[in-house]
Computed example of a mutant assay.
Amino acid sequence: MPTPEQITRHDDSPPPDGLSPWVGEYRPRTDIRVVDPDPAWPERFATLAARIRTALGDRALVVEHIGSTSVAGLPAKPIIDVGLIVADSADEEAYLPDLEREGFTLVVREPWWQEHRCLAHDDPKCNLHVFGPDAAEPVRQRMFRDWLLTHPDDLALYRDTKREAAAAANAAGEHVMQYNARKQQVIREIYDRAFRAAGLLPAE
Protein backbone atom coordinates (compact mmCIF):
# COMPACT_ATOMS: atom_id res chain seq x y z
CA MET A 1 0.00 0.00 0.00
CA PRO A 2 1.26 3.50 -0.76
CA THR A 3 2.02 5.80 2.16
CA PRO A 4 0.16 9.06 2.87
CA GLU A 5 3.26 10.97 1.74
CA GLN A 6 3.24 9.12 -1.59
CA ILE A 7 -0.49 9.69 -2.06
CA THR A 8 -0.39 13.42 -1.34
CA ARG A 9 2.78 14.18 -3.34
CA HIS A 10 2.15 16.07 -6.60
CA ASP A 11 4.68 14.44 -8.88
CA ASP A 12 5.21 15.63 -12.46
CA SER A 13 7.66 12.79 -13.19
CA PRO A 14 9.17 14.00 -16.46
CA PRO A 15 11.00 11.29 -18.41
CA PRO A 16 14.73 10.93 -17.78
CA ASP A 17 16.97 12.58 -20.35
CA GLY A 18 16.86 10.81 -23.68
CA LEU A 19 13.77 8.74 -22.91
CA SER A 20 10.21 9.11 -24.14
CA PRO A 21 7.00 7.68 -22.66
CA TRP A 22 5.47 7.18 -26.12
CA VAL A 23 5.51 3.70 -27.64
CA GLY A 24 6.09 3.33 -31.38
CA GLU A 25 4.54 6.05 -33.51
CA TYR A 26 1.96 7.10 -30.92
CA ARG A 27 1.96 10.77 -29.93
CA PRO A 28 -0.50 12.88 -27.88
CA ARG A 29 -3.51 14.18 -29.77
CA THR A 30 -4.37 17.75 -30.66
CA ASP A 31 -7.91 18.99 -31.41
CA ILE A 32 -9.18 18.42 -27.87
CA ARG A 33 -12.92 17.82 -27.61
CA VAL A 34 -14.60 18.26 -24.23
CA VAL A 35 -18.24 17.25 -24.62
CA ASP A 36 -21.32 17.33 -22.42
CA PRO A 37 -21.87 14.35 -20.08
CA ASP A 38 -23.12 11.25 -21.88
CA PRO A 39 -25.38 8.81 -19.99
CA ALA A 40 -23.88 6.01 -22.10
CA TRP A 41 -20.44 6.36 -20.52
CA PRO A 42 -21.08 3.92 -17.63
CA GLU A 43 -22.31 1.31 -20.10
CA ARG A 44 -19.21 1.76 -22.24
CA PHE A 45 -17.08 1.27 -19.15
CA ALA A 46 -18.98 -1.93 -18.35
CA THR A 47 -18.27 -3.23 -21.87
CA LEU A 48 -14.56 -2.47 -21.50
CA ALA A 49 -14.37 -3.94 -18.00
CA ALA A 50 -15.92 -7.18 -19.25
CA ARG A 51 -13.34 -7.42 -22.04
CA ILE A 52 -10.48 -6.78 -19.60
CA ARG A 53 -11.74 -9.39 -17.14
CA THR A 54 -12.31 -11.88 -19.95
CA ALA A 55 -8.74 -11.33 -21.12
CA LEU A 56 -7.05 -11.48 -17.71
CA GLY A 57 -9.33 -13.36 -15.34
CA ASP A 58 -8.06 -13.11 -11.77
CA ARG A 59 -4.89 -11.35 -12.96
CA ALA A 60 -7.05 -8.21 -13.08
CA LEU A 61 -6.92 -7.35 -9.39
CA VAL A 62 -8.93 -4.14 -9.78
CA VAL A 63 -10.82 -2.75 -12.78
CA GLU A 64 -12.50 0.58 -12.15
CA HIS A 65 -13.98 3.57 -13.94
CA ILE A 66 -11.83 6.66 -13.35
CA GLY A 67 -11.41 10.10 -14.86
CA SER A 68 -14.04 12.60 -15.88
CA THR A 69 -16.36 10.13 -17.62
CA SER A 70 -16.79 8.39 -14.24
CA VAL A 71 -18.28 11.54 -12.65
CA ALA A 72 -21.96 12.12 -13.38
CA GLY A 73 -22.58 15.64 -14.67
CA LEU A 74 -18.97 16.36 -15.63
CA PRO A 75 -18.03 17.22 -19.23
CA ALA A 76 -15.17 15.14 -20.60
CA LYS A 77 -13.24 14.05 -23.61
CA PRO A 78 -15.36 11.16 -25.01
CA ILE A 79 -12.75 8.57 -24.03
CA ILE A 80 -13.36 6.21 -21.12
CA ASP A 81 -10.53 6.11 -18.59
CA VAL A 82 -10.15 2.73 -16.91
CA GLY A 83 -7.85 1.89 -14.03
CA LEU A 84 -6.36 -1.61 -13.96
CA ILE A 85 -4.25 -3.02 -11.15
CA VAL A 86 -2.19 -6.13 -11.82
CA ALA A 87 0.38 -7.92 -9.69
CA ASP A 88 3.31 -6.24 -11.48
CA SER A 89 2.70 -3.67 -14.21
CA ALA A 90 6.37 -3.90 -15.26
CA ASP A 91 5.83 -7.55 -16.22
CA GLU A 92 4.15 -6.78 -19.52
CA GLU A 93 4.28 -10.38 -20.73
CA ALA A 94 1.93 -11.34 -17.90
CA TYR A 95 -0.96 -9.23 -19.22
CA LEU A 96 -0.19 -7.31 -22.42
CA PRO A 97 -0.54 -10.10 -25.03
CA ASP A 98 -3.99 -11.05 -23.72
CA LEU A 99 -5.15 -7.43 -23.70
CA GLU A 100 -3.83 -6.95 -27.23
CA ARG A 101 -6.03 -9.84 -28.36
CA GLU A 102 -8.99 -7.85 -27.01
CA GLY A 103 -8.09 -4.81 -29.11
CA PHE A 104 -5.91 -2.84 -26.67
CA THR A 105 -2.64 -1.26 -27.85
CA LEU A 106 0.24 -0.16 -25.63
CA VAL A 107 0.86 3.55 -26.23
CA VAL A 108 2.67 4.75 -23.08
CA ARG A 109 5.37 3.12 -20.97
CA GLU A 110 6.64 5.04 -17.90
CA PRO A 111 8.84 2.83 -15.71
CA TRP A 112 10.12 5.97 -13.95
CA TRP A 113 6.59 6.91 -12.81
CA GLN A 114 5.11 4.14 -10.67
CA GLU A 115 5.66 1.64 -13.54
CA HIS A 116 2.67 3.15 -15.34
CA ARG A 117 1.52 1.69 -18.65
CA CYS A 118 -1.31 3.09 -20.79
CA LEU A 119 -3.16 1.15 -23.47
CA ALA A 120 -5.61 2.60 -25.99
CA HIS A 121 -8.77 0.98 -27.33
CA ASP A 122 -10.82 2.28 -30.26
CA ASP A 123 -14.34 0.86 -29.78
CA PRO A 124 -15.36 1.95 -27.22
CA LYS A 125 -12.64 4.59 -27.06
CA CYS A 126 -10.60 4.04 -23.94
CA ASN A 127 -7.38 4.83 -22.13
CA LEU A 128 -6.47 1.89 -19.89
CA HIS A 129 -4.06 2.88 -17.11
CA VAL A 130 -2.13 -0.06 -15.64
CA PHE A 131 -0.41 0.05 -12.25
CA GLY A 132 0.77 -2.36 -9.58
CA PRO A 133 -0.71 -2.70 -6.07
CA ASP A 134 1.80 -0.36 -4.42
CA ALA A 135 1.29 2.58 -6.79
CA ALA A 136 -0.12 5.78 -5.32
CA GLU A 137 -1.79 7.08 -8.47
CA PRO A 138 -4.81 4.72 -8.40
CA VAL A 139 -5.57 5.87 -4.86
CA ARG A 140 -5.32 9.50 -5.97
CA GLN A 141 -7.57 8.89 -8.99
CA ARG A 142 -10.20 7.22 -6.82
CA MET A 143 -10.12 10.00 -4.22
CA PHE A 144 -10.44 12.70 -6.88
CA ARG A 145 -13.40 10.95 -8.51
CA ASP A 146 -15.20 10.36 -5.24
CA TRP A 147 -14.58 13.92 -4.05
CA LEU A 148 -16.13 15.41 -7.19
CA LEU A 149 -19.12 13.09 -6.87
CA THR A 150 -19.89 14.53 -3.43
CA HIS A 151 -18.72 18.16 -3.73
CA PRO A 152 -20.72 20.06 -6.35
CA ASP A 153 -18.76 23.31 -5.93
CA ASP A 154 -15.51 21.60 -6.91
CA LEU A 155 -17.27 19.71 -9.69
CA ALA A 156 -18.44 23.04 -11.12
CA LEU A 157 -14.95 24.54 -10.71
CA TYR A 158 -13.37 21.61 -12.53
CA ARG A 159 -16.06 21.66 -15.22
CA ASP A 160 -15.35 25.31 -16.01
CA THR A 161 -11.60 24.77 -15.85
CA LYS A 162 -11.78 21.89 -18.34
CA ARG A 163 -13.78 23.89 -20.85
CA GLU A 164 -11.52 26.93 -20.56
CA ALA A 165 -8.38 24.78 -20.86
CA ALA A 166 -9.69 22.96 -23.93
CA ALA A 167 -10.61 26.23 -25.66
CA ALA A 168 -7.22 27.77 -24.89
CA ALA A 169 -5.28 24.64 -25.90
CA ASN A 170 -7.14 24.33 -29.19
CA ALA A 171 -6.63 28.02 -29.97
CA ALA A 172 -2.90 27.56 -29.40
CA GLY A 173 -2.69 24.29 -31.37
CA GLU A 174 -1.61 22.38 -28.27
CA HIS A 175 -1.80 18.66 -27.59
CA VAL A 176 -3.55 16.85 -24.76
CA MET A 177 -0.58 16.93 -22.38
CA GLN A 178 -0.45 20.72 -22.68
CA TYR A 179 -4.22 20.80 -22.09
CA ASN A 180 -3.63 18.78 -18.91
CA ALA A 181 -0.97 21.25 -17.80
CA ARG A 182 -3.47 24.10 -18.12
CA LYS A 183 -5.72 22.30 -15.59
CA GLN A 184 -2.96 21.33 -13.20
CA GLN A 185 -3.20 24.11 -10.62
CA VAL A 186 -6.95 23.67 -10.11
CA ILE A 187 -6.62 19.87 -10.01
CA ARG A 188 -3.99 20.12 -7.28
CA GLU A 189 -6.12 22.51 -5.25
CA ILE A 190 -9.03 20.05 -5.40
CA TYR A 191 -6.76 17.13 -4.52
CA ASP A 192 -5.46 18.98 -1.46
CA ARG A 193 -8.98 19.64 -0.21
CA ALA A 194 -9.75 15.94 -0.55
CA PHE A 195 -6.50 14.99 1.19
CA ARG A 196 -7.18 17.34 4.11
CA ALA A 197 -10.72 16.00 4.50
CA ALA A 198 -9.29 12.46 4.63
CA GLY A 199 -6.71 13.47 7.26
CA LEU A 200 -3.77 12.89 4.89
CA LEU A 201 -2.69 16.57 5.06
CA PRO A 202 -2.85 18.97 8.01
CA ALA A 203 -5.71 21.43 8.05
CA GLU A 204 -4.98 24.91 6.73
Rank of each mutant, 00 (worst) to 15 (best):
residue 62 V to S: 04
residue 53 R to P: 02
residue 69 T to C: 13
residue 82 V to G: 02
residue 96 L to Y: 08
residue 47 T to R: 14
residue 125 K to I: 04
residue 106 L to F: 10
residue 94 A to R: 12
residue 131 F to R: 00
residue 94 A to L: 02
residue 68 S to N: 09
residue 99 L to R: 05
residue 82 V to Y: 02
residue 86 V to L: 05
residue 108 V to Q: 03
residue 126 C to D: 06
residue 53 R to F: 02
residue 119 L to Q: 03
residue 102 E to T: 07
residue 78 P to L: 05
residue 126 C to S: 14
residue 97 P to D: 06
residue 67 G to N: 05
residue 54 T to L: 10
residue 54 T to G: 14
residue 115 E to A: 13
residue 87 A to D: 15
residue 86 V to C: 04
residue 98 D to P: 01
residue 54 T to M: 10
residue 59 R to I: 02
residue 79 I to W: 01
residue 128 L to G: 07
residue 129 H to C: 07
residue 131 F to I: 00
residue 86 V to S: 01
residue 104 F to Q: 03
residue 120 A to T: 12
residue 50 A to N: 13
residue 54 T to F: 12
residue 93 E to N: 13
residue 93 E to C: 03
residue 107 V to G: 00
residue 72 A to D: 14
residue 83 G to Y: 00
residue 127 N to W: 13
residue 77 K to M: 11
residue 73 G to P: 12
residue 117 R to Y: 03
residue 66 I to M: 10
residue 62 V to L: 13
residue 54 T to A: 13
residue 115 E to S: 10
residue 85 I to H: 00
residue 98 D to M: 14
residue 117 R to I: 02
residue 63 V to A: 09
residue 40 A to Q: 14
residue 43 E to A: 13
residue 116 H to N: 03
residue 107 V to I: 15
residue 43 E to Y: 11
residue 120 A to L: 09
residue 52 I to W: 02
residue 92 E to R: 15
residue 78 P to I: 10
residue 60 A to W: 08
residue 129 H to I: 06
residue 112 W to F: 05
residue 77 K to Y: 05
residue 43 E to F: 14
residue 124 P to F: 13
residue 99 L to Y: 06
residue 101 R to M: 10
residue 104 F to H: 04
residue 83 G to W: 00
residue 129 H to Y: 13
residue 125 K to H: 12
residue 101 R to S: 14
residue 68 S to C: 11
residue 79 I to M: 07
residue 81 D to F: 08
residue 71 V to P: 07
residue 128 L to S: 07
residue 52 I to M: 04
residue 130 V to E: 02
residue 126 C to P: 08
residue 126 C to V: 09
residue 69 T to S: 12
residue 108 V to I: 15
residue 78 P to W: 11
residue 109 R to Q: 08
residue 130 V to H: 01
residue 43 E to V: 11
residue 97 P to M: 06
residue 109 R to T: 08
residue 89 S to G: 03
residue 62 V to K: 09
residue 52 I to Y: 01
residue 109 R to P: 00
residue 60 A to V: 12
residue 99 L to M: 08
residue 128 L to F: 09
residue 43 E to R: 13
residue 66 I to C: 03
residue 90 A to H: 12
residue 112 W to E: 04
residue 70 S to Q: 10
residue 100 E to N: 10
residue 68 S to R: 07
residue 68 S to D: 09
residue 64 E to C: 06
residue 60 A to N: 10
residue 74 L to S: 07
